[in-house]
């Protein structure tokens, strides 16, 4: 793929990946997994923002959840 646009499949994969990571980041009790998921969420969020697919502020919710 060289057009510079995501295919519908790639877009779906990106969204699903973000949702899965977000859930792990918010709920997982294993520190190493939760930490890795939170770092990955930040990176994948940037990808979503760059494709104008999603944009959100989320860290305050994690603070509230502990």
């Amino acid at each position: 793929m060289t057009s510079g646009e995501l295919t519908p499949r790639e877009e779906r994969q990106l969204r699903e990946c973000y949702a899965a990571l977000h859930e792990l980041a918010a709920t997982c009790s294993v520190p190493s997994v939760r930490t890795a998921a939170r770092a990955a969420v930040a990176e994948v969020h940037v990808a979503l923002d760059g494709q104008a697919l999603d944009f959100e502020m989320y860290t305050h919710r994690w603070l509230a959840e502990g």
């Binding site: 793929m1 060289t2 510079g4 760059g50 494709q51 104008a52």
Partner: peptide
């Protein structure tokens, strides 16, 4: 893949009205 000159082709080349809408969001 061929070299892509833009880091984010979608948001770097989107029509102005779409860009404005994305900024507003």
């Amino acid at each position: 893949t061929a070299d892509q000159p833009f880091w984010n082709p979608r948001t770097e080349t989107m029509p102005r009205e779409q860009l404005r809408a994305w900024q507003w969001t």
